[in-house]
Nucleic acid binder design. Structure first.
Lengths: 152, 152
DNA sequence: GCTTGACCTAAAGTTAGGTTTAGAAATTAC
DNA sequence: GTAATTTCTAAACCTAACTTTAGGTCAAGC
């Protein structure tokens, strides 16, 4: 009887789509075993694992990042509450950083609403050198403030 | 001489890729005219327009949302600083809401690290009914807290 | 006047995070 | 024992925001 949960059961209990659970397996986030008929069977601990995935996604982590965190869980045994608590602390720092960035952005915006400039000449709303605020890769400038386009 | 900027000039001054600028035109964010040879020519005001797009993207707005904001600019004349300031105020509320959501999330996480539960039984880290924290569409539950799977 | 670089269009490709489809096999329900 | 449901795989499709490619035209330098 205690031979694991089917993918449908796991889907009902988490609210995830069956296809999403299969996708997560493909991404290495969960590792079910197979029964004699080749169907996936999951441990009850996978419920918690998927909960972690769902929370981490809310926090803006990518699946590879989440996988990296999950890989820090003990291999041989079912994770304890202490294991999960340790992992959860990693969220704290990332979340703090994100809040800090957004708050800084908002404060800059506050200073900028009065002038309406949207330019690096007068406000610091957009600073390409601020690594914390940058997600992309290429250099991007506001109002034509390209390095070689120095204004006289 | 003052017959507008080429797409390459605009790209150099903003740091955007030429292909991105063409894409923005296709999305209706900018409306260049064409010279006799069929090449795009841009107004200097488009530098500011693209700056707005870049900032708004940093804030997490989608291109259709940004377009909606830009559509509120006056049609017949070059936008003034006051126009831009009016538009920028819209950012304020959205940004405030996002910071509030993240802060609430972090505070819930703080309460949860001690117990390691990651479950709705003991912590409120994940609340599917909290519209502010939800981006997806389907119902999703933590640790199997599906409505029909009521625990005794 | 010719060569090089900038520009044109249209369509296909890319990444993340999945969903949908099709056809077949396993399991459950009656 | 059979019908209905679930599950299986593989591949195609989806959205957002772009980039790349292919093949051709325009413009600028010497």
């Amino acid at each position: 009887m205690n031979d694991g949960l089917s993918i449908g059961a796991l889907a009902r209990r988490t609210g995830l789509a069956v296809s999403a659970i299969r996708y997560y397996e493909a991404q290495g986030l969960i590792k079910p075993w197979r029964n004699s008929g080749g169907q996936r069977r999951f441990e009850r601990a996978d419920l918690r694992r998927l909960s972690f995935v769902m929370i981490a996604q809310q926090f803006g982590f990518t699946l590879p990042q989440i996988r990296a965190e999950l890989d820090r869980l003990p291999g041989g045994r079912t994770p304890t509450k202490a294991d999960w608590a340790r992992i959860s602390e990693g969220f704290r720092a990332a979340l703090d950083a994100r809040i800090t960035t957004l708050t800084k952005l908002r404060d800059n915006l506050d200073g900028c609403i009065g002038c309406g400039c949207l330019s690096l000449e007068v406000c610091a709303l957009y600073n390409p050198r601020d690594a914390a605020a940058q997600m992309g890769q290429g250099p991007r400038y506001l109002m034509g403030d390209a390095p070689e386009a120095q204004k006289r």
